[in-house]
Simulated assay, not measured.
Amino acid sequence: MNLALRDIRHRLGRFLITCLGVGLLLGVALAMVGISQGVVAEALALTRSLRAELWVVEAGTRGPFAEARRIPGDVREMVARVPGVSAAGSITLRTAEMAAPGRIIRAQVMGYEPGRPGWPSNISAGRGLGGARHELVADERAGLGLGATVLMGQDRYRTVGLTRGLVASGGDPLVFIHLRDSQELQFKLSPPAARRAAASGAGQGSTDTVNAVIARLHPGADAREVAETIRRWKHLSALTDAEQSELLTRSVANRARVQLGMFTVVLLFVTGVIIALIIYTMTMDKLREIATLKLIGAPDRTIAGLVLQQALLLGLAGFAAGLALIFAVRDRFPRTVALGPEEIGVMLAVVVTICALESLVSIRAALKIDAQAALGG
C-alpha cells in the first residue's frame, strides 16, 4: 500500500489547492530567475545586433552604456584609417521621451549613419533608415506601428521599421534615427540657450559630436591589437566586443541581477518553510495510519520513504504548475523573461533539494509515533 498516493487520492482537492499555492510561489521565483537572465540578454542584445567588433570612446571612459561622454565626429575617419579596420560608423546614445498620440514613450534613442556600422540587424518589419530625415526604427515594445508618428524635440518622426528584443539595460525600448537628427536633438542648443551662449561669448558650438565610434575589422585582424593601436592616441580609448560585453554584464546589469537574486533566495526560503509546514501537517493527519504501519511491522525506511515521496510529489507538482504559469504569461512582462533548459534544470534541482531537506522534520516526527496509537479510541 502506497500511503502517500492513497492520502493524495482521498484528499485530492486539498492537495491540488496546496500545489497551486506552492506553484504560485515557485512561479514568482522562476520569474525572478528568468528576469535576471533577461537583464543580461537585454544588455547584450544591442551589441550583438550591431555586430560591432570595436568600440572607440573618450579616453578614461568605459563606453557609451556606462558613461555619457563625447568625442569629435571626425574620429570616425581616423578610426577608419587604422590598419585592420574595414568600416567605422559614429553613434549617439541617450534616453529621451517621445510624444505619441495619447501617451508619452520613454525610450533610448540611438543615432547612426545609414550604410555604416550602427544599424540594427534584426529588423522584423518594415525597413531600415533610408536617405530621408526624420525617420525612425523602433522596437516593438515601444508600441508603435509602421507609419506611426511621434514628436521628438520640434520635429515629427515617422516609423519605417520595427525591431524585436532590442531594449536598453533599464528596459526602455530602443529607437534608431539618423545620426544628424540625433546630434541636433542631443547637442544643438535651444534658441534661448544659444542667445545666452552668444551673449557670454561662448558661441553655440558644433553639433558634430558623437558618443562613440564602432568599427568592424578585416577577417583575420586581431581586435586586441587594433584596440591597442587606438589606445596609443592619448585622447581615445578602445574596447573590444568581448570587453564591452563583460562590462555590460558585470557593471551595468550586475546590480539588478544581485537584487533579483536576493529576492529569489528569499522566495525559495519562504517556499521551503511553507512546504515544511504543509508536509508536517499532512504527516500528523496520518498519525493513526502511520501507527498502524508500525504495528504490523513496517520498517522505519518504509515510513520515511512515504513521507519523502509525498514531499517530492508536492514540490514537483508545484514546480510544474509554476513553470506552466510563467510560460503562459511571460510575454506580458515588461522585462524579458529568459528561461532556458539550464535555468529550469537548476531550479528543479533546488526544489527537489528543498523538499528533501524540509521532509526531514516530518520524517523525524513520523518515526517517533507510538505504534500503540493505532489501538486508541
Rank of each mutant, 00 (worst) to 15 (best):
218 H>N: 08
220 G>Q: 07
222 D>E: 13
222 D>S: 14
224 R>A: 15
224 R>H: 12
226 V>M: 04
226 V>S: 00
227 A>L: 03
229 T>D: 02
230 I>Q: 08
231 R>P: 02
231 R>F: 04
231 R>S: 06
233 W>D: 09
235 H>N: 13
235 H>I: 02
236 L>N: 03
236 L>T: 06
237 S>G: 15
237 S>P: 07
238 A>V: 02
238 A>F: 03
238 A>E: 06
239 L>S: 03
239 L>G: 02
240 T>G: 14
242 A>E: 15
243 E>K: 05
244 Q>D: 05
246 E>M: 00
247 L>P: 05
249 T>L: 03
249 T>F: 07
251 S>H: 09
252 V>E: 12
255 R>P: 14
256 A>H: 12
257 R>D: 07
257 R>Y: 08
258 V>L: 11
260 L>R: 04
262 M>P: 11
262 M>I: 08
263 F>I: 05
266 V>I: 09
266 V>S: 05
267 L>M: 13
267 L>V: 05
267 L>I: 02
268 L>S: 08
270 V>Q: 09
270 V>L: 13
270 V>D: 03
270 V>Y: 08
271 T>A: 12
272 G>I: 01
272 G>Y: 06
272 G>W: 03
274 I>V: 10
274 I>S: 13
276 A>S: 15
276 A>R: 14
276 A>T: 12
280 Y>E: 11
280 Y>C: 02
281 T>M: 11
282 M>G: 12
282 M>K: 10
283 T>N: 15
283 T>R: 02
284 M>G: 00
284 M>Q: 09
289 E>V: 01
294 K>I: 01
295 L>T: 09
295 L>Y: 15
295 L>Q: 13
296 I>C: 07
301 R>H: 15
304 A>S: 15
305 G>D: 13
308 L>T: 02
309 Q>I: 01
311 A>K: 04
311 A>H: 07
312 L>E: 10
312 L>V: 15
314 L>A: 11
